[in-house]
């Protein structure tokens, strides 16, 4: 299992701030796709992804027990 954290409007969209899914061995790209389907999050394409508090690229493969945070860039200022 991996732990997934949602931030900003992703929370409102998915209705939760965190969740657990099977994801070990998959790439971030694959996980984003699954999360969009499973949690009805529409906006993951541009979300930055951190694994264990470190940004990773889309081809990064997650490991069992990883904490994956999706942080959508916001534009207001």
């Amino acid at each position: 299992m991996i732990r997934i954290l949602f931030f900003a409007h992703l929370r409102e969209e998915t209705g939760q701030s965190e969740a657990e899914i099977e994801g070990a061995g998959k790439t971030i790209k694959q996980i984003k796709k699954e999360v969009v389907e499973q949690f009805h999050a529409s906006r993951l394409d541009s979300a930055m992804t951190a694994v264990n508090e470190e940004f990773v690229p889309e081809d990064y493969r997650v490991k069992e027990g990883d904490v994956v945070a999706f942080i959508p860039p916001v534009s207001g200022g």
Binding site: F7, S17, M48, E53, F55, P57, A69, I71
Partner: peptide, 20 residues
């Protein structure tokens, strides 16, 4: 680090960014 926070939901993240 890259900082991200939510003052209402009481989150604070410091994320290492060097790998990008």
């Amino acid at each position: 680090s890259f900082v991200s926070f939510d003052l209402w939901k009481n989150d604070h993240l410091e994320i290492k960014a060097g790998a990008l």
